[in-house]
Computed example of a mutant assay.
Amino acid sequence: MIGIKPPWRSSNPQPEIATLRAPVPPGMPDREKIQVAVDAKNILRTIEVFFAVAESNGIQQPEVSVGKPYLLQQVRSAKRLLALSLRFYPDLADGTFSPTHLENVNRVGPHLHRALRNARIADYSPID
């Protein structure tokens, strides 16, 4: 085993996650879609939270979509989850976001996660 380096002592460390993402072009939001995974029994409350947060941030006509249900295997039981997406659209004719709309869209993510916690709705989606 001489000369073999353990992976954590590699001379080529992996790049930071932030460096793997493509830079956001000017006039575009950090993300155009926010996804969460919630217990199926909380689907209607989550949709209500989505629309309330979007409206409170000045977002008009966001699109909410629901994915196929799937099971999350836990130690003692399984949870039936549904993936929900909240999508935002540009407000300018050239397909970009005005500065005000861009700022509003970029604020939705943190507000959404806070509102879900306040409503006691668990988000089972991976953290990115």
Rank of each mutant, 00 (worst) to 15 (best):
67 G>T: 04
18 A>M: 01
104 N>G: 05
108 V>I: 15
17 I>G: 04
127 I>R: 12
30 D>I: 03
89 Y>I: 06
59 I>H: 08
6 P>T: 09
87 R>F: 03
22 A>K: 12
14 Q>N: 09
95 G>R: 03
51 F>H: 09
51 F>T: 02
74 Q>C: 11
124 Y>S: 04
23 P>R: 10
68 K>V: 07
63 E>G: 14
70 Y>N: 10
96 T>W: 04
66 V>R: 13
37 A>L: 11
61 Q>F: 03
111 H>F: 12
39 D>H: 04
13 P>K: 05
68 K>G: 11
34 I>C: 11
79 K>P: 00
47 I>E: 14
110 P>H: 09
15 P>K: 02
86 L>G: 01
77 S>Q: 15
79 K>W: 01
67 G>V: 05
6 P>C: 08
109 G>I: 12
19 T>M: 11
63 E>P: 08
95 G>E: 00
76 R>N: 07
9 R>P: 03
48 E>C: 13
70 Y>Q: 09
80 R>S: 07
107 R>M: 05
127 I>Y: 14
88 F>I: 00
60 Q>V: 13
2 I>L: 15
110 P>F: 12
11 S>R: 11
56 S>D: 15
93 A>D: 05
106 N>W: 05
39 D>L: 01
117 R>F: 15
96 T>Y: 02
98 S>F: 12
117 R>G: 15
40 A>V: 06
113 H>R: 07
67 G>M: 06
47 I>L: 15
107 R>P: 02
21 R>T: 09
68 K>S: 13
113 H>T: 00
68 K>W: 08
38 V>P: 10
63 E>A: 11
102 L>F: 09
127 I>W: 08
62 P>I: 00
55 E>L: 06
18 A>P: 02
83 A>T: 07
100 T>H: 12
51 F>V: 07
128 D>P: 09
72 L>G: 03
90 P>S: 02
40 A>N: 01
117 R>M: 14
62 P>H: 06
127 I>H: 13
